[in-house]
Design a protein around this nucleic acid. Structure first.
Lengths: 191, 191
DNA sequence: ATTCAAAGTGACACTGGTGTCACTAAAAAA
DNA sequence: TTTTTTAGTGACACCAGTGTCACTTTGAAT
């Protein structure tokens, strides 16, 4: 060690996240980030060659956190129990949706480090998808899921629901319970 | 009239749409747009004072087109028939989702024309929402919708499903049919 | 106390987008 | 044919972000 750092990775990633989620990939700049962290722009270049590299590192960090938490979930219950847990979990981690979208926006011509991160992020994504797929397979094995529905549709719908904007500020619990209800049993009364 | 124009509004909006949907609001520039249209950048300033104004006009154009088509839909059937038609329609107009998102990104400090367009877009949005709400009300009147589910959740889910990425390229028809099935009756077999 | 290594700074040259404007080009009206 | 009107051009000054680098600061090790 030599001199104390003026900002931690956590602070940097937190600021990055806020900025990117609020205004998008293109609006993220080293200048603004430096201002938030109360350091000079130059100091950030000590750790990241450019914006793409910084963002790809941020995404790795977020993805690791997500997968780590995901792996802690109880995988012992039956399909319905696990689905319930999964949906609750996804809503807790509701930013993962945005994270996955940002991955697509990393440009192509950059540094080795970025390319490396991009392919690792892709692997993670596939890995995550396969774990979810395992859950659907369980549902099929238990013979509770309508067998003609494609797995991609089921996962897509589960995953997409977290991004529904709750404009009317319906209480979180009611909101999630209602979404679960529709996903599992539909919006119509049984006849 | 004096001289012939080198590009039509339609061409301009088409290029704008492509650019914005692909790379986002911030990545849109007059330079790129001028290049696509094979004109000088300066000529675009003859019609739009700046980027925000151009994009807000583009959004008005898209929204008008959407509402115009929407008003052509047959509103005479019962709830299920109309819901079917609506979902098909939304999938046909799948970009409306992105259009609505872009509206939120127009910055605040701009020209009168932009502010004007922004508030009109908001009115349109509310108008559209109310029409959809009318459909849900019909479902409630017909007593086919589960009465405890909030309208916002039902509309949110219907609307959000068009944005599910079909990574595995499941045929459009099967894709839409499956989504309808889940929305209406859920993913589980009836017991 | 001196030295050293990492952290941080700010000035510099550069790039790409912005908005403007005097000017040119072309088509219709006179 | 000349005039008028609108479309289009490209050069200019400007701004904000980029990436670099010689330099300064700071804290720990010798």
């Amino acid at each position: 060690m030599a001199r104390e750092r003026k900002f931690t990775d956590e602070q940097l990633f937190k600021a990055t996240k806020q900025m990117i989620i609020q205004d998008g990939y293109e609006a993220f700049t080293f200048s603004k980030l430096a201002a938030i962290l109360h350091v000079s722009r130059g100091s950030i270049y000590k750790y990241y060659e450019n914006k793409d590299e910084l963002i790809s590192e941020f995404l790795m960090y977020e993805m690791n956190r997500f997968l780590h938490n995901f792996n802690r979930l109880d995988k012992s219950g039956d399909f319905q129990t696990q689905l319930d847990l999964l949906i609750d979990f996804i809503f807790e981690q509701s930013n993962i949706h945005q994270v996955l979208e940002i991955i697509q926006q990393i440009p192509v011509n950059t540094t080795k480090r970025v390319e490396n991160n991009k392919s690792r992020l892709n692997e993670y994504h596939i890995d995550m998808y396969q774990q979810f797929q395992g859950l659907i397979d369980l549902g099929r094995k238990e013979n509770v899921i309508k067998s003609h529905l494609p797995t991609a549709v089921l996962l897509g719908m589960i995953f997409q629901t977290i991004a529904i904007p709750n404009h009317f500020n319906i209480p979180q619990e009611e909101w999630i319970a209602s979404i679960k209800e529709v996903l599992i049993h539909g919006m119509l009364k049984k006849d």
